[in-house]
């Protein structure tokens, strides 16, 4: 196990420690880490060990495993996940949403009784769910006929807090047209823009681990899931589990949108591929 040095120095982490950690982290989150990310993992583990004044890796791992309330486990998840994104990223899928998917979903619903529910996972700092909301308001003609819920979840508590604040800098907004920026954002100082209150209040943010059956059991009656660039971090079994959870979360006929480099057909055959002019998406069969 890791050797303590002095109180001021970074505790050393051995190859065995990393292997044990990767195994533990995978079981908890479904996220598979390998030696190619050794530097990334080391740095973050060292930071957490120092923050908790743990002198050995074993001491730190015990804290993570057995701490009441699981605060350190959550802090570790926050450190280990990557959250870089921006508004209107891979926007062909949002075009597909408002030109094709929503009409198909709406045709099978009664607007007096049924809602349309869209879920963004992982939502990171909120760029994706806000983009979905803006796309619907701007581009889907039937938006006013239905009650539409947008749910947004992430495993990282820190990014959820940022998403709820809805404050962004130029880098995240570089693909937002000026008229959209002026309609849905408010400049709060020289470098920062905040999503308007009405829109912020329209997104239901929550903490969800997609490999946790208890978390996923809370999510039902969804019509469209955006899950982009998450499953690439999972191993085969976790990917298939996530696909099964998505299937259960969706209404019959509901859609899953994955990232451009991801393929559901390589994960599971329980969804039907739907090739729209704008995008290939994956549909839960109607029956």
């Amino acid at each position: 196990m890791g050797q303590a040095t002095s109180a001021q120095q970074v505790p050393r982490i051995s190859v065995e420690d990393i292997t044990a950690f990767c195994d533990f982290f995978y079981k908890k989150t479904g996220i598979s880490m390998d030696a190619s990310r050794r530097y990334f993992i080391d740095r973050r583990l060292e930071e957490r060990m120092l923050a908790n004044e743990c002198k050995t890796f074993r001491e730190y791992l015990s804290l993570v495993k057995f701490q009441a309330g699981g605060a350190e486990m959550q802090a570790l998840i926050n450190e280990m996940t990557v959250n870089e994104t921006y508004f209107f990223r891979e926007d062909y899928q949002f075009t597909c949403l408002t030109r094709r998917m929503l009409d198909e979903i709406a045709d099978n619903k009664d607007p007096r009784r049924d809602r349309i529910r869209i879920w963004s996972i992982p939502c990171s700092t909120g760029e994706e769910p806000y983009t979905i909301a803006i796309s619907i308001l701007e581009n889907w003609k039937r938006a006013s006929e239905f009650d539409i819920e947008i749910l947004a979840s992430d495993i990282d508590t820190r990014v959820i807090a940022k998403a709820q604040q809805g404050i962004y800098q130029a880098r995240a907004l570089h693909r937002v047209p000026t008229n959209i920026r002026e309609t849905y954002f408010q400049q709060i100082d020289r470098d920062n823009w905040q999503v308007i209150k009405d829109l912020r209040e329209s997104i239901d943010f929550s903490i969800v681990n997609v490999t946790n059956p208890a978390h996923m059991a809370r999510l039902r009656n969804i019509d469209v899931i955006f899950c982009r660039n998450l499953l690439i971090y999972f191993d085969d079994i976790s990917r298939r589990r996530a696909a099964e959870h998505f299937f259960d979360a969706l209404n019959p006929g509901g859609f899953v949108c994955l990232g451009h480099s991801e393929s559901m057909s390589r994960i599971s055959n329980i969804f039907l591929p739907r090739k729209f002019p704008e995008a290939l998406v994956h549909q839960r069969p109607m029956k």
Binding site: P111, R115, A133, I136, L137, A143, S144, E145, F146, D147, I148, E149, I150, L199, E201, S202, I203, D204, R218, L219, R220, N221
Partner: peptide
Amino acid sequence: MGLLKTSQKAQEDPTQA
């Protein structure tokens, strides 16, 4: 109709039903 506010849906969330 349109986007539901989180406060509007709290009382009748079908996921809790």
